[in-house]
Design a protein around this nucleic acid. Sequence first.
DNA 1: ATTGCGAATCTTGTATACCAGATAAGACAA
DNA 2: TTGTCTTATCTGGTATACAAGATTCGCAAT
Lengths: 244, 244
Amino acid sequence: MLGQVHKIFFMCNDITSALPCSGIAIDDRIMTAILSGKILPGERLGEKDLGQTFGVSRTLVREAMMRLSSRGIVAVSPRRGWFVIEPTIKEARETIEARRSVEIGLLFTQKNIPQGALNELENHVTEQQKAIDARDLAKRSYLLGHFHVKLAEIYGNSVVVEILETLTARILLIATLYQSTHEAQISCNNHRDMVNSLRKNDKREAIKIMNEHFSHLDKALSNRSIKKDSPLRVYEISNLPGNT
Amino acid sequence: MLGQVHKIFFMCNDITSALPCSGIAIDDRIMTAILSGKILPGERLGEKDLGQTFGVSRTLVREAMMRLSSRGIVAVSPRRGWFVIEPTIKEARETIEARRSVEIGLLFTQKNIPQGALNELENHVTEQQKAIDARDLAKRSYLLGHFHVKLAEIYGNSVVVEILETLTARILLIATLYQSTHEAQISCNNHRDMVNSLRKNDKREAIKIMNEHFSHLDKALSNRSIKKDSPLRVYEISNLPGNT
DNA sequence: ATTGCGAATCTTGTATACCAGATAAGACAA
DNA sequence: TTGTCTTATCTGGTATACAAGATTCGCAAT
């Protein structure tokens, strides 16, 4: 039980080796593990285990979890442990709707994309296709989600990028498990079409495709059974105080 | 120096009295203080002070700050202390652009608003006007920002609401200090016009007004000098890992 | 075999202890 | 007086200690 988590993080040695690791690096490592499918939604993340894995005390692990919880990636169940969020179907749909608003809003409000950036996007789509063909599920999910982050990056607004990274990660928590190869291919095609529209400077068409893209995502989700509401204590955004 | 912060929080006894206060309540209290203008951007928040104020150890304070930092509300300067974020002008503009995308995207993609909700919005605008007339700067800033959160609430998507709450808070950190009465009145008028457009189901006009609203906000900002980049260590969203 | 109950164990919640860097204060010399 | 160097103090960074709830395992009774 203990060595389980340990092994997971040793496997995902994207950043450094494994042992010495402090501060915000822990967030990164955990996010990386989640995004690459090494950690699945619902999985328990024990503070002690993580601490041993990273060679730090529970304090730092806990702080990292606090930050991740604030981004809606993990949640704590009192005295039971931290768990990777399992979005309910309602939450998942809301997240998709949020992305629809943000991304369509982005296309709608921002100026045209420089051609150079489009080449990059095109290459990204090619990578997506490769991952699909290679049946590399983890990479496939990651790339399909990351495409949208990349799109936001092109517009050069780091705030939007930040938002989309978080939202995409949350969607990924579902998609990794449930997306079929067929659906992945549709998404990839959507992406390709979108890039083509952008290259033609046809913003209207790009928006239309984006809209359909999310509708498809939503529909695909509805056809599956997602875990119902969990009783986890979520450290969520505070409700703003009433006035008067 | 110590009693300073202490007094601030005693004054903002919106939620409970003052002393016993644990967990996420600390986030709320600090956010409340910020949103109501009790705490200004750039202000230092010592862990020890806050701990004494809330009657808890530094541990809980620190965890709260970690969560707030992840939302871009505060940042830590190593071994110097926590500070309320002072957005640079670049960051502020990016935040405004982000809100433009999100909110216009929301208007664009979502269905029409039920009439009942519009009455609520109208009342909210009335409150804004009252605050402006009464020269109540704190309340004015808060209400003008909160209008947008309320608009998002109507669409029933808690994810979007969460995003807008955070973004609005960040803008508020600037607006509280720098917004003039004249500008506040313009914003309020924009809000009123927006509600009217929505009542006519004229989505196109609503979007147009929203767009101008943000353009005005951006312009107002550009005419002022905002603190330049600060060297604070920001616990920010991790960069997603590159793929091989 | 199954169900109930209780103790042992595991896990988070919270506070405290100690370290190191940063800052401010003070002494001393030019 | 002013500038600089030293030292005392303050603050966050990190680890650890201890408390208390949750879970699990075992044993006994049915």
